[in-house]
């Protein structure tokens, strides 16, 4: 029983991580007034490029780096269309998602062929923290994670601090609320929004790479299964704060892990319904399950300078 609980918690955290990593980036984007539906596509690019990087350089960490840079490049396209051209953010986001599916599928087939056996890549392996990992139940589940997991959990207080206590965080929050007011005090709204989007891209790339190099250890075409959208939902659910996103991601992760457990345990419920668990949670989260939840006032509105 103890082992099962430990495994379950461990699985929940691992399932939560891609959503959480992507969500931290999205918090900054959302706070700056950007609805980033394109997160799904950013993440997919990251997932693929992580595999490519790891394959070419035989290092998972370099894979992550390659993934982050690639997603950031894609997010630059998103930023150009939404901030400079002032196109509709949702439409551009959907476009990016389709582009990402096409691009990764094509490149994957081109690089690795159609019907080969799974490619061999360097992936992350669990890293036990000496001492802490010996604690019963929680020790193995919390402190036998992949290295990026520790990094991300350490990043959460840092992200909170940056968002709420620093000059740059204040600018990000202000730009999402009232861009014109920011303009009148000499803030370059476009620069702040570009920065927030690029950071979202960077983190989405990381999240995607973790998905392929930490969680799944392979790449298949179109493997996202809506995790990018769930990250967007986690940001809303978590009320646009890093800590909130962490909690939201863990709840989604718990749902995902539950679904695996029930399937593996031979539940009487048809598995199709079990697969729905994380998505039902997402829908509940978005539908104001969390009560009144007001996002930044200038959400999704392009800023047009007079």
């Amino acid at each position: 029983m103890a082992i099962e609980i430990s495994n379950y918690i461990s699985m929940a955290i691992r399932s939560a991580l891609p959503i959480l990593i992507c969500g931290i980036g999205l918090v900054f984007g959302s706070r700056a007034g950007i609805v980033n539906i394109g997160a799904e596509g950013f993440m997919l690019i990251g997932a693929f490029m992580g595999v490519v990087g790891s394959y070419l350089f035989s290092s998972a960490w370099i894979g992550v780096l390659v993934a982050m840079l690639s997603s950031m490049l894609i997010s630059l396209i998103f930023a150009y269309f939404t901030v400079t051209v002032k196109a509709d953010q949702v439409v551009v986001g959907m476009g990016i998602n389709m582009l990402a599916i096409g691009l990764t599928t094509t490149l994957f087939r081109r690089l690795f062929g159609m019907n080969t056996e799974p490619i061999k890549i360097e992936s992350f392996s669990p890293l036990a923290i000496p001492g802490l990992s010996d604690i019963p139940i929680l020790g193995t589940s919390l402190f036998t994670q992949h290295a990026p997991a520790y990094l991300i959990f350490l990043c959460i207080p840092l992200a909170s601090f940056i968002l709420f206590r620093t000059d740059i965080g204040l600018k990000v929050r202000a730009v999402g609320e009232h861009p014109r007011a920011c303009d009148t005090v000499g803030i370059n709204v476009f620069k702040v929004r570009y920065g927030a989007i690029l950071f979202s891209g960077l983190m989405a790339g990381f999240a995607g790479a973790y998905l392929t190099l930490g969680l799944l250890n392979f790449f298949v075409e179109d493997l996202m299964a809506g995790r990018g959208y769930m990250a967007v939902a986690a940001v809303v659910f978590g009320k646009y704060s890093p800590v909130g996103v962490m909690l939201a991601a863990l709840i989604f992760g718990a749902g995902d892990a539950l679904q695996y457990r029930l399937q593996a345990g031979g539940s009487v419920i048809p598995y199709q319904f079990l697969l729905m668990i994380p998505y039902v949670l997402t829908i509940l989260a978005i539908c104001g399950f969390v009560g009144e939840n007001k996002g930044p006032a200038a959400m999704a509105q392009p800023y047009i300078k007079e």
Partner: peptide
């Protein structure tokens, strides 16, 4: 004329 204050801050 329309104040440039951010209500949420």
């Amino acid at each position: 004329q329309h104040f440039m204050l951010i209500p949420a801050l």
